[in-house]
Design a protein around this nucleic acid. Structure first.
Lengths: 330, 330
DNA sequence: TTGAAAGCGATACCAC
DNA sequence: GTGGTATCGCTTTCAA
């Protein structure tokens, strides 16, 4: 493969001049510039990005660290990030952590070792605990989960508000024994807060057995939902904090042959293919997932361009989509 | 950040020795080795992978090029690839092409420019057309779509057989006017072949208006399905070649208030969350997606380790899951 | 405007 | 076994 040296020879100039032509073309006689460009063309020369990166201590790769790309929220997010980065000539290293701080740490180290341009991360709980903005030698944008008291760029949903609206909707529809399938990530806890706020404001009792902490997996949602159904006083509505839990809950409801929304309501977060295809369709808070990813990518690009700028936290509102799963006829 | 030079100084040895200790530890006195390791520890030294990559002309990053990560098949595939690569210390660059040969070409160039270790790709039609094994200066494993007459590692589904079984099942259930929503990718065409083979073998007419070529998007599936429904002689069964088309078709069926499976059957490829949650659940050919990704990753790793080995094509069978969407009571 | 040359931080060859 | 040093391919002063 042709190197910059070959091009320099072919064009009868030095490598420095070739480099100048390729980087911005400034301070090069038009005539020479054309000669170099012709040589580049002829030799099908493409700069070695590894060498460039080593010398310039920069790179055009960013890291995207999420817990599991199969979670529809992260799938959509990653697509948006990739799109936005692609437009700016960056590429995306995809990393799944499975909520394991060890995997996350390894990936964060990898980023450091490759002098990556920056990272978009949905942090595990441990990272959240130990995070400081000086921890990492590269720009970081946090998505989905907040890191309190740390000065870092972030794109988040107004979780408390969204959960409050979703729960209030259930109450207004006449549901009273609203079970909540939550998670112990910041996102889940904030949504739980919104849920509890709604109950409290409407004079409903907060009962511990109505809230379960569940790992964000369909099977876990299934098991937890069954527990809430198979009791003397079963829930008349299920509030889940993400689509995986909702899918598990729906499976449980179907297996017990309960009718939605009459026997039991089901509401959740995140729009998915299935939520609008099942009948009745599922009432939910739709996150602007693509917009979240795009915004995170843009924040990161801006910080890469200007490391000194002040940090911003972008808080987006969810959209309540009322559908059949929470609107009984009676 | 500490460099190998700092470690060498701290340990009182040359950089060459440090490099030896870190790469394999061979030909180094145990005593010296310990001294170096201690220095590494003390300085929190981590080798700069960019420098290593430049000098050794290798890397531990692989590229994964798919049309759209949001297609559940690719989501699952990418997760499997990432898992397998992670275990071997490799990381994954994710690239979406949207079936655009230009984007694909740019990414392929990027791979070349970063001396990437290898690539797993679901090629667009143009790549398929121009692909030769000498095209790319790095190992390639093809997934999902076949490249005829080219000697390249590949992991594929036995599409003809799978589609044949799926269609035969429909015929055996009494369906006669089976519409097919296909795609013009090799995968779609092979599945169409299996569909046609089944019709032919059972003495059913092949009618051109029963087959539509549709871009792999939900909206396109929706529109195409409507066309097959809203005719004088509507289909009594819909065969779609991927889950996106099936989702669109289901939406169309629901909108026309048709009953599955009595008014119309629906069968497809790829297991998804929604296919088992809707009622009736969808009959389909489940691809072993995780296994496909894992196998592709393993093939790639093996070829990276031994570029001279003979190529293999792994053909996996799909699993026919018969469910409610194709089994009428009558 | 242009070129020579010094690195970026590793690896690997060749002496010793 | 160990060290010196050329080298990977580029960018970036510094001089001219």
């Amino acid at each position: 493969m042709a190197s910059i040296k070959d091009v320099a020879e072919a064009a009868g100039v030095s490598t420095a001049t070739v480099s100048r032509v390729l980087s911005n073309g400034l301070h090069v006689r038009p005539e020479v510039r054309e000669r170099v460009k012709a040589a580049v063309e002829r030799l099908d020369y493409r700069p070695n990005l590894v060498a460039r990166s080593l010398r310039s201590q920069q790179s055009t790769t960013i890291g995207l660290i999420v817990s599991d790309i199969r979670n529809p929220f992260f799938t959509s997010l990653s697509r948006a990030v990739e799109d936005t980065m692609y437009e700016q000539g960056f590429s995306v290293l995809l990393c799944n952590t499975d909520e394991q701080p060890e995997k996350e740490a390894i990936y964060l180290n990898l980023m450091r070792d490759t002098s990556i341009a920056g990272v978009i991360i949905s942090p595990t709980r441990r990272t959240v605990a130990s995070f400081t903005d000086s921890n990492n030698p590269f720009p970081v944008v946090v998505v989905d989960r907040s890191i309190p008291n740390v000065d870092v760029d972030a794109v988040l949903l107004d979780n408390v508000d969204a959960a409050y609206r979703l729960t209030t909707h259930l109450i207004e529809q006449g549901y009273r024994r609203i079970g909540a399938l939550c998670s112990d990530m910041s996102t889940g806890l904030e949504r739980q807060t919104g849920y509890e706020k709604a109950l409290r404001e409407h004079g409903l009792a907060l009962r511990a057995e109505h809230v379960k902490y569940v790992p964000p997996k369909m099977e876990a949602g299934y098991a937890a939902a069954l527990k809430m159904i198979d009791t003397a006083e079963p829930s008349d509505a299920l509030f889940t904090v993400n689509s995986l839990l909702a899918a598990g809950a729906l499976q449980a409801i179907q297996e017990r042959h309960l009718t939605i929304p009459d026997d039991i309501a089901l509401v959740t977060f995140d729009e998915t293919t299935w939520a609008s295809l099942v009948q009745p369709a599922i009432t939910l808070i739709a996150q602007p997932t693509y917009e979240i990813g795009q915004t995170a990518a843009e924040l990161l690009l801006q910080r890469i361009a200007d490391p000194g700028r002040s940090t911003r936290q972008v808080i987006l509102k969810g959209q309540l989509l009322v559908r059949g799963s929470s609107t009984p006829r009676r």
